[in-house]
Design a protein around this nucleic acid. Structure first.
Lengths: 193, 193
DNA sequence: CTTGTTAGCTACTAAGATTAGCCAACTGCA
DNA sequence: TGCAGTTGGCTAATCTTAGTAGCTAACAAG
């Protein structure tokens, strides 16, 4: 009975690969075990169960997304930064659909939850991008939500293949960025009467 | 052994109630049967399985959303129509979170799929609202996608409780509508450098 | 009233999550 | 080297839930 010498990180890695390759819904303890070359019950030596594994996968995905976004917006401002942010999100979902799916609906386990910290970092990065726009202080939180909403909406529609790939999706994405840029420049300068 | 006299519609209705009350993930054949006062295997006399039940629930939800949107935009134009559209979507998700969740990721079974027709109707309604804006023909498809993306993004974030209810979410929603209205008025009138 | 259809039933199988408890492989230490 | 404690992997079993097989009685049509 040779030991495989696995760590919790290895288990999450296997889960991430399975989710990306076969879809998040196909992520099972049995498949994770098979990929690691062990039996299903042994997986529980590293994670407490499927729920925790899903949560850890969501945490890892959010952290990776944060890294990608941070790299994409570094040294950029204004529309450049906004485009970098949007593309980083879109590219992450395309490259890792299963991981992104794990973040959808993953709840926070408490104030010390690493997923909360990872999510907060992404939101901080959005806020940083918005500093390049002339948004009145009280409206910043609303602008952050708007951008978050647009990006998440696009990612979800892409994830679920909702565009049916009709027409030029790339062009739509470009216009989405322009739409946000234009809207953010006008934010707070118009009376939403 | 008195018959319950159930129809497929009754089964979908029970599924809708369960999804809204206990969450879409809790929707099981067993719970549906219990709510209908029958045993689990009997459910298969009305639907072919859980997958079909989920698909039918998604279809019903999309049709209901279409009805709600149609009512909300009737007799309105421009920003009024846009706000009606947005509120109808938001209100539907709040009232029927489980049903909306069913529509997320539900795939089309083919060209004759009723879900496809129901989805197409909603997109048609979005297109109708956008007719009130001065959008160049070739850009209309991109504008539709943008609006769809913003609305779906908001609904998803609301569905997954992602705002944590910090700050004034209602005010954020108002600004989201203004943001869209402003962006749609500028669409095609600016060069997306 | 008889006959066909079918909605509901019990009993069963299979998949997957999870637990209990065993045992051998490492670890640390003398 | 040898020994003790820890622990990662195992088999076996339970529980939940989807789904199937086959029976039977309720209803519809004549």
């Amino acid at each position: 009975m040779p030991r495989a010498g696995l760590t919790a990180a290895d288990v999450v890695q296997a889960a991430a690969d399975i989710a990306d390759e076969r879809g998040y819904q196909q992520l099972t303890i049995g498949l994770v075990a098979a990929r690691l070359g062990i039996r299903a019950p042994s997986v529980y030596k590293h994670v407490s169960g499927l729920a925790e594994l899903q949560h850890q996968l969501a945490t890892r995905a959010m952290a990776e997304l944060g890294d990608a976004v941070a790299t994409a917006v570094a040294g950029r401002a204004g529309r450049d930064a906004l485009a970098g942010l949007a593309r980083a999100c879109r590219d992450y979902v395309v490259a890792h659909p299963g991981r992104y799916a794990a973040t959808v609906g993953a709840g926070f386990a408490g104030p010390g939850d690493p997923l909360l910290a990872a999510s907060a970092r992404v939101i901080e990065l959005i806020a940083a991008v918005l500093r390049g726009y002339d948004i009145p202080g009280p409206d910043l939180v609303h602008a952050i939500r708007t951008v978050r909403c647009v990006l998440h909406g696009w990612c979800m529609l892409q994830l679920t293949n909702a565009f049916q790939w009709s027409g030029d999706v790339e062009e739509s994405f470009e216009q989405l960025i322009s739409f946000m840029d234009y809207g953010l420049r006008g934010a707070g300068h118009t009376d939403p009467g």
